[in-house]
Design a protein around this nucleic acid. Structure first.
Lengths: 345, 345
DNA sequence: ATGAAAGCGCTAACAG
DNA sequence: CTGTTAGCGCTTTCAT
């Protein structure tokens, strides 16, 4: 209906001419900035609508150096060769939710691959701010963005950059404690931890909370490291390690990565271990693989939707000049999805 | 190293001053446009590098109305409330692959939610082109983009818009035939089809190819419709329908949506039907749910990576002024992943 | 071979 | 209350 007769984009001048005012008045009317007579404002709005006018985001961005776009880098995906489908629905949910939240706030969300290793498309450095998910230790992406003066918030700490405080995230230590308590309450005697090799805070904080607990109750700590890229096979490899271990298979395992947990369980079951009777398993990240495993694996739902929402909110807060007195680190509540893999009676 | 001493962004003027030339020369040198003495060009490059200069994408975009960003709308996700995690890894792979491909070609990739139903962030209409995945019948998004003169390519046809030819996609009919042949070759006598309710070409073309085959071999067509949003429960509902049907459960089922297939199989198995002995099941879209089902479900791998790559390529082709003599519809080869659910001996 | 100057469409001082 | 004007950083004629 209405709008565009000619192909040419309708500009602020067109609206000004039609409404019989200056472009300034149009700008003010539409942005609610200056002081404009109500009547005039109404007329301008009317004309603008009729013409289907909407301010050119580029021109506006040039003026106000605000493009209206947020960049998103998901670091764990950068190590993958090609955004493979390996049980990474957490990130799909995260990216989708971030996009939705950004859109709702009038921003676009641009997915970007590690801007340090590839020639950076200029546009990547023109965004208003960045969200960087699961930064690695001393993350070079953070350096790059700092160098360009681009605001960013991280999801998860940069474990080697204590001075960097613009991050938010799940309370990984709390999650670890929750899992351990759950396992203990169901009769676990020895609990092992399986973590990934990426140098991010999820791995680091989980391990340290686990070791802390082990030390506290005099339990020997059993920590297995397995590359995130290895998928289910990696989980099976860890299972072999446990099977061959002199201390045998522990009677409870907290395995951070969902796909490791799935492979681990499969291998143990194949070898005659019963889940949850002989061994209980909990995954640190819920995914389809944990939900669909046999039996389904108790997992922590990382609630990427709320994390993404919080990240966008915090970034936008950072962008607005209103100086946030203090860092309100939104506490994100993850949920333990209890399933059959820990259903001891 | 090098670069940014002051906080301020380094502009073309800085480079010009440092190199002792005009901004014009800098622009020409860096873009290889005008005629510049080799010596000068070299010096400019040197200075630019030393200063860490890179042209502001926004300013450049304003001049050349080329922002360097592609928009991506995934229609099936718009109907979902919030990009839920329901076995949609196809789209994650698609979005990720599209982003990577775009980045490799010097473009950014912006995820956008249905720009017709929400207030359009101005930036959405400033992108250079759009990819719209699985448009619905007479898709209003296509209207909107056309109205704004924004180039687009669709992945999948708009089934009610025959005149629109800028689309590409898997050969859905071929996939259907492949599946039917596979099932027939394994002794299927009666094959049923389960499709979704979205008015997109995947559903439409699959059904029509199926009906065509049924008519050809005198088989009665059995088509079940189930809402895409219903997930595994929807699959179970279809199973109930089949169980209650006077003709009974068919001995082979082609179920487009992976999560329907998973639920369907679960319910049938619960009711004592053996897969693949009594009934074989094939899903039209591989996903974690089909891979992890018990037994694993034979599925078509939609190879979103190659589709995304082709979509980006075609859109960029469209954007370049080089008039493409003819529409080369890249044929995308989907792969039938054969698993236990059709492993009749 | 190089540079001056005119904008791209918009916002924000600053006048009137 | 409204309009004039000066750019934002860059590309691109058109002179020189």
């Amino acid at each position: 209906m209405s709008t565009a007769s000619g192909r040419r984009k309708v500009t602020i001048h067109d609206v000004a001419r039609q409404a019989g005012v200056s472009i300034t008045t149009v700008s003010h009317s539409l942005n609610g900035k200056g002081v404009v007579a109500e009547e005039t404002r109404a007329r301008v709005h009317e004309v603008a609508t009729k013409l289907g006018y909407s301010a050119d985001a580029i021109a506006r961005g040039l003026r106000s150096s605000r493009l209206g776009v947020l960049g998103l880098v998901i670091r764990p995906l950068d190590s993958l060769d090609s955004y493979q489908p390996i049980g990474v629905d957490y990130f799909m949910r995260f990216a989708g939710a971030a996009a939705v939240e950004a859109l709702d706030r009038g921003f676009g969300l641009m997915l970007v691959r590690d801007p340090t290793t590839h020639s950076v498309p200029a546009i990547a450095l023109a965004v208003d701010g960045f969200i960087i998910s699961d930064p690695i230790a001393n993350d070079p992406v953070i350096d790059l963005l700092n160098r360009h003066g681009i605001p960013l918030v991280a999801v998860g700490r940069d474990i080697d950059r204590p001075e960097f405080t613009d991050w938010l995230g799940e309370d990984t230590s709390q999650d670890t404690r929750t899992v351990i308590e759950h396992l203990s309450a169901h009769g676990a005697r020895s609990i092992a931890l399986v973590r990934g090799t990426d140098a991010n805070s999820w791995n680091a904080d989980s391990e340290s909370a686990y070791r802390h607990w082990a030390a506290e109750c005099g339990q020997p700590a059993a920590v297995y490291l397995e590359d995130e890229r290895s998928g289910e096979d990696g989980g099976r490899a860890v299972a072999e390690l446990m099977l061959a271990s002199p201390t045998g298979v522990p009677d409870a395992i907290y395995c951070l990565t969902g796909r490791h947990a799935a492979g681990l369980q499969k291998r143990l079951v194949e070898q005659g271990h019963r889940v949850p009777i002989d061994v209980m398993i909990v995954a640190g990240a819920d995914s389809e693989q944990t939900r669909n495993a046999t039996p389904p694996i108790t997992s922590i739902d990382l609630t990427p939707e709320s994390t993404a929402k919080a990240a966008v909110t915090q970034l936008l807060q950072l962008l607005s000049d209103t100086p946030t007195a203090e860092h309100v680190r939104p506490s994100i509540t993850n949920i333990l999805r209890i399933r059959e893999s820990t259903a001891r009676v």
